[in-house]
Structures are given as structure tokens and as C-alpha cells.
Amino acid sequence: MSEVLVLVENTPQGIRKSSLELLTAARRLGSPSAVLCGAADDAAVASLGEYGAATVYVVPGTDGYLSVPAAEAIVDIAGRTNPVAVLVTSGPIGKDVAARVAVRLGAGIVTDATDVRSEGGVVTTSQTVVSGQWVATAQVTSATAVVTVRPNAIAPEAAPATPAVQTVDVAFSAAATGAKITASNPKVSTGRPELTDAAVVVSGGRGVGSEEGFGVIERLADSLGGAVGATRAVTDLHWVSHDLQVGQTGKTVAPSLYVAAGISGAIQHRAGMQSSKTIVAVNKDPKAPIFQVADYGVIGDLHKVLPALIDEIGKRKG
């Protein structure tokens, strides 16, 4: 069975959920091989094996660089294994890696896929296009398909295997090591889940009213164990940091529950959240477009509705 190369990400909290989603998708196309940049601890290998990795390629020497060494490692491994597909998670690193790999392999590339499958032996993808208004289905006709997959689009399913671990020493090109990370300034940890991985996201828009007012969004997120998001209007006003922006030029999220408070629902915002499984909206304006995509909506003042909701959740939790 053909190999499928999967770029996985290891964090201090373990292998990222989106990487396990990729391994799950990879099993539909062939035999998954994880490509892990950096050190491979036992827990990481065990977790990759649990989700079906038959091989784990460990690539040393990528620390201190953004994405080009990872791309060259995949090209190197692909040269020996002729994979049917290379899967990476959508995001800045994933896009950079996929772009380079596609050029080097002359491979067709699909970005932001929400589904990957094999139809008659051909790698077939689904993706939303034009700010989420259309769904495009595509077939990749080159020998290898390069696909970036949106986090939270494919449910991870375990399929235990015992991976063979191989260290791959790659001779990186001058261009691979030409851009160096000179500093890494850690952000203050909120203890909340990562926005793109979170099962619950609570977002606030301009209707929240002020930076101080945004506290109620954070309190609701904490009571639901979720991440905090915001519209571009809010990040442009610096009420919260830019990396919490959900929408066309921010993050795309697809959680089980998305709560939109004080958000009108402009198309640029909806593009980043309309794949959420359940959508709840609170807005003063009954004509706000967000209500068109909401499973449940409350027309009212979020500064009255959300505190009452937080109280009620507290009571139900006991």
C-alpha cells in the first residue's frame, strides 16, 4: 500500500489534535507515515501509533527555522517513498511547507480541504471557496497530491499500530536555513485551549462595546471550557490581541459550539466560522445576518443575557 506522508506537530502538551486528524484522513488514502520535526519522545511516538502511523520519520536540525527545512525533509523522504499524498494542517507553517513540496514534486495542491478521500484510486478533496459560499470538489491528477487540511474538519479515530521509527538526516539547502528565528517572545498563557483546536469558541464583536466589556466573553468561554475569539473590528480596536481574530484574514474555526456575541455576521467573519456544528448568537439587532446561520439566537443586550447565562451554567454545574 502506498505511503501517505503526514507532517505532524509535537507540543509540550503532546501531538496536536489536528495531526491526529491528518493521520485519520491519511488511512483512507494509504499507509500513514508521520514526519516529525524535532525530538521524538516515547509519548509522541505512542500517540502517533495509536492513530495508525506505520512509520515515524524523525527529522533533526529544523529548530530555529520556520518551514523550509520541514519542506525539504518531506521532499527528501518523498523521493524515496513515492507517496500518494502529503498531508499538512492548514496554517502559516502548513501553507509554506505544502507550497514548496508541491513545486519540488510538481504535485497538484489543494488548500484548506474539509474532506479528503480516495475515489477510484484518485485523491479527491472537498473545500469551501469564495468566503465559504460554495463547496468545490476536486481530483488531484498528479502522482502525489499535496493537501492542506483544515483543523477540526475530520474527526480523529484511533487505529492502533506499532510504528517503525526512522531518523532522517537531511542535507538542507542554503535557502532552507537562510531565514533564522532570532527571537521568540512568548505570549501570556491564558490557560484556554488553542483557538483552531477548541471544541467551544466564544467570540465577541464590536457590540461588546469596550475592552473592559470583553471580560464577559472571557468569563463565558471559561465557564464552557472554550477558547476566546473576536471579529476583525475588535482586533483592529486592540480590545484583544490580533491572533484571536476569526474570519477571512484571521483563523478559520469549526468547533462543536460557536457562540457569537455582539457580532453582526459580515461575510468576512462568517467565512471563518460557518462550518461550526452548533452556532449560537446574541445580538441587539434582530436583522443581524448572524441570526441567519444561528441554531439558536437571542435578540437582546449581551451584557444582560451572557451574565445570566454564566449564572445559569454555574447553577447547572452545581
Binding site: 459560499q133 460554495w134 491528477t141 460557518q274 446574541v282 437571542v298 443575557v305 447565562l309
Partner: peptide, 30 residues
């Protein structure tokens, strides 16, 4: 090297329940 085989409008989300807040909005949402 990628052939688009179909492009269809995203299925519309089925209309949800929208209620005005008459003091019970938070509890209804919960």
C-alpha cells in the same frame, strides 16, 4: 494538476430558533 469536478452552493443552514430577550434570554440559552 487539480481538476475541479463540481462547485455547488454551500447547503444553507436550517433556520434556528430566534427568541427576544424578555428577561429569560440567558436561562433559555442555557
Amino acid at each position: 494538476a487539480v481538476k475541479v469536478t463540481s462547485v455547488t452552493p454551500t447547503p444553507a443552514r436550517t433556520a434556528g430558533t430566534i427568541v427576544p430577550d424578555e428577561g429569560e434570554g440567558g436561562a433559555q440559552l442555557a
